[in-house]
Lab assay of single mutants.
Amino acid sequence: NQESVVAAVLIPINTALTVGMMTTRVVSPTGIPAEDIPRLISMQVNQVVPMGTTLMPDMVKGYAP
């Protein structure tokens, strides 16, 4: 099972992602793959992401799977 990126904290809208904001977990449905965390650093979320929420591609500005 592939791990997906999950919010480790509440991430406010338009916040640039940092390593500490993200964790990984096997979830269903799957979100952004864990191995993409290095690509996500400094990208901004386009909505509020509650802690424990799986990051989906459409939540991150400029992210393309």
Rank of each mutant, 00 (worst) to 15 (best):
G31V: 06
S42T: 12
L17E: 00
V19D: 13
P50N: 15
T24A: 13
M43I: 03
M22Q: 01
E35S: 12
P33A: 06
L10A: 12
Y63W: 15
G31T: 02
T24Q: 14
E35M: 05
A64R: 10
L10D: 07
A7H: 00
P38I: 06
Q47D: 07
L40P: 00
T30L: 15
M22Y: 02
A64P: 05
S4F: 04
A64H: 11
S28N: 11
M56D: 04
N14Q: 12
V49A: 03
A34D: 11
I32L: 04
Y63A: 04
M59K: 02
G62N: 14
R25L: 05
E35K: 05
L55D: 01
A64G: 12
A34E: 08
L10W: 08
D58M: 13
M56R: 09
V9P: 00
E3N: 06
G31I: 03
T18L: 10
V26Y: 07
V48Q: 14
Q2R: 03
I11E: 00
N46S: 10
I37F: 09
T54R: 04
V60E: 01
E35I: 09
V27N: 05
G31R: 03
D58W: 10
A8P: 01
V48H: 08
A34S: 14
K61E: 12
N14D: 13
V49S: 01
N14K: 12
A7W: 02
R25M: 04
G52L: 09
I37M: 08
G62W: 08
M59P: 01
P12F: 05
R25Y: 08
T54A: 06
I11D: 00
V45R: 00
G62M: 06
I32A: 03
A34R: 07
G20T: 15
P29Q: 04
I32C: 03
Y63S: 03
V5T: 06
S42F: 08
I11G: 00
E3P: 05
V6G: 02
V48A: 09
I13G: 09
Q47I: 13
V5P: 01
M56S: 08
D58F: 10
G62E: 09
E35N: 10
L55T: 01
T24D: 02
V49P: 00
V5W: 02
P57M: 06
G52E: 13
I41A: 09
Y63L: 10
P33I: 09
Q2G: 15
G62T: 07
L10I: 13
N1H: 04
I32S: 02
A64F: 14
S42A: 12
P12R: 09
S4R: 02
T15N: 14
M59H: 09
P12Y: 07
D36E: 10
I41K: 05
N46T: 12
L10P: 06
V9L: 11
Q44D: 04
N46Y: 06
T53M: 11
L40R: 00
G52F: 09
S28P: 02
V9Y: 10
I41Y: 11
V27R: 06
L17R: 00
P57I: 05
N14W: 14
M22P: 01
M51Y: 11
G62V: 04
T54S: 04
A64V: 13
P29W: 05
A34M: 07
A16P: 12
P50M: 07
G52N: 14
P29M: 04
M56C: 03
Q47C: 04
V19P: 11
N46R: 15
L10H: 09
V9S: 13
M22H: 01
P29K: 06
P12D: 11
T54Y: 05
Y63F: 12
Q2F: 07
A7C: 03
L17T: 00
V5M: 02
Q44I: 12
T15G: 10
V60D: 01
L40T: 02
N46E: 07
T15Y: 10
V5G: 00
V26W: 07
V19R: 09
D36W: 06
V48M: 11
P33R: 06
M43K: 07
D58N: 12
D58Y: 14
P38L: 08
V26H: 11
V60I: 10
P29T: 06
P33C: 12
R25E: 12
T54C: 04
I37K: 08
N46C: 05
V19I: 07
V49L: 14
E35Y: 07
E3W: 05
I37Q: 13
M59L: 04
Q2W: 04
R39D: 03
T24C: 04
A8S: 10
D58Q: 15
M51Q: 12
N14S: 14
A8R: 09
Y63T: 03
M59V: 05
S28D: 14
N46D: 06
P65L: 03
Q44M: 11
L10K: 08
A16S: 07
S42E: 12
T15K: 14
S4I: 02
I13Q: 12
P12C: 06
Q47M: 13
I41L: 15
P33L: 04
E3G: 05
L17P: 02
R25F: 08
P50V: 15
P50T: 14
D58H: 10
V19H: 15
L17F: 02
G62R: 05
V6K: 02
G20Y: 12
L17A: 01
P57G: 15
V19K: 13
M21F: 06
G62Y: 10
D36H: 15
L55K: 00
I11A: 00
G52A: 04
D58K: 12
E35L: 11
Q47F: 08
I13F: 10
S4T: 05
P57R: 11
E3I: 05
I41C: 04
A8W: 07
S4L: 02
